[in-house]
Amino acid sequence: MYVAVKGGERAIQNAHAWLAEERRGDQDLPLISTDQIKAQMALAVNRVMAEGSLYDPDLAALAIRQARGDLIEAVFLIRAYRTTLPRLGASVPVDTGAMAVDRRVSATFKDLPGGQVLGPTFDYTHRLLDFADAASVDPAPLGAPDPAPVPHVTAILDRDGLIEPAPRDDSPAPDLTREPLELPAARPLRLQALARADEGFLLSLAYSTQRGYGRTHAFVGELRIGRVPVEMEIPELDLTIQIGEIELTECETVNQFKGSRTEPPQFTRGYGLVLGQSERKAIAMSLVDRALRWQELGEDFTGAPAQDQEFVLSHCDNIQATGFLEHIKLPHYVDFQAELELVRRLRTETPTLKEAAE
């Protein structure tokens, strides 16, 4: 046993050294800096921050480089680091209505207060490789926009009583990063889980709702990306101070709803809020959020995966999924030998159908 441990330890050290060599790559090339990752791979940085539940572009860029571009591994590094940080206090809820928007679009109203702001988006680009980009040709700089706060689009429907009132609950929300998930979960806890869920998993669930597995038909009432101030109350001084600024992506969907046994015909809401610029994730989150609300709206459960909160919330975390999946590549020699002996014994004790027929 001692020899096996020593041999395994040496092999692991060599694996780590080889990993460091592979991570560095061709040493004739300059080492990519975390500033370059942060500036030029911003969407990857944003995803790591969102799923890692920590808003720090510098650390997310470092994690991406350390993980060799494996974003789930980078999320794991950020989550692990996050657990070492002290909890100094809690910020007050951010006001997304006061967001300084860089991008703001609506699929429900063409002309809306504040206007449509296309912002930086792939939506209108040709999906063709840009070889000028490969040649490192810098684009011509644009003037910095001067964003101003704009009202939420759903306020237009709310004003006419055509959409359900925004749910309001002033009780303290549970903190998923400090307390284990318990089912059934109320909407604030569900939204926390979805906000840091794996983007690909949410995307698949959201797509399933659009294909009929969830009885929802959504319009993007508004998608906005921008920066909001983060404020913190100082009780000793009886004041609130701004401690920073973060970028958020917010999506509100407007969904068809013919009414139920408990609710009148009206539009209903789906909601998504994600750290950084991550509009695909925010849209998917809002669709899944709406699908999970079937019970409070008095709808029937159709058996759709996106309606089953135990299925969704128990499988949406990519760190939990990765740990459970990848542990099966670790040594299971004793377990396998036991099953191997069981199969051998069963083969000797139980005749096959062919043998039984003979």
Rank of each mutant, 00 (worst) to 15 (best):
Q116M: 12
Q116Y: 08
V117Y: 09
L118Y: 06
L118T: 14
G119V: 14
P120V: 11
T121K: 13
F122L: 15
F122T: 13
Y124W: 14
Y124S: 12
Y124F: 12
T125S: 14
T125E: 12
H126F: 04
H126C: 09
L128I: 10
L128V: 14
L129A: 13
D130H: 06
F131C: 14
F131Y: 11
A132F: 06
D133E: 13
D133T: 14
D133L: 13
A134L: 14
A135M: 14
S136Y: 11
V137S: 07
P139G: 03
P139H: 00
A140T: 08
P141E: 08
L142Q: 12
A144H: 13
P145L: 01
P145W: 01
P145Q: 03
P147V: 06
P147S: 03
P147G: 05
P147W: 01
P147M: 04
V150I: 02
V150N: 00
V150D: 02
P151S: 03
P151Y: 02
V153C: 00
V153K: 00
V153L: 01
T154M: 03
I156T: 03
R159Q: 15
G161R: 03
I163C: 07
I163D: 05
I163Q: 07
I163G: 03
I163M: 10
P165M: 04
P165C: 05
P165Q: 03
P165S: 05
P167M: 02
P167N: 01
D170A: 07
D170H: 05
S171W: 01
P172Q: 02
P172E: 02
A173W: 04
D175N: 00
D175I: 04
L176K: 01
L176G: 01
T177I: 05
R178L: 08
R178D: 00
E179T: 10
E182R: 15
E182Y: 05
A186F: 04
A186K: 12
P188L: 07
R190P: 11
L191D: 10
A193D: 04
L194T: 10
R196W: 01
R196F: 04
R196I: 01
A197S: 08
A197Q: 02
A197N: 03
D198C: 06
D198N: 08
D198M: 05
E199M: 01
F201N: 08
F201Q: 04
L202Q: 09
L202G: 06
L203S: 02
L203W: 04
S204E: 15
S204L: 13
S204T: 12
L205K: 00
L205V: 14
A206T: 13
A206Y: 08
A206K: 09
Y207T: 08
S208C: 12
S208H: 11
T209H: 05
Q210Y: 07
R211T: 14
R211H: 06
G212F: 08
G214H: 05
G214T: 10
G214R: 09
G214C: 10
R215S: 12
R215E: 14
T216D: 13
T216Q: 13
H217S: 11
H217V: 12
A218Y: 10
A218C: 11
A218L: 12
F219D: 09
F219Q: 13
V220W: 01
V220D: 02
G221Y: 00
E222C: 02
E222D: 04
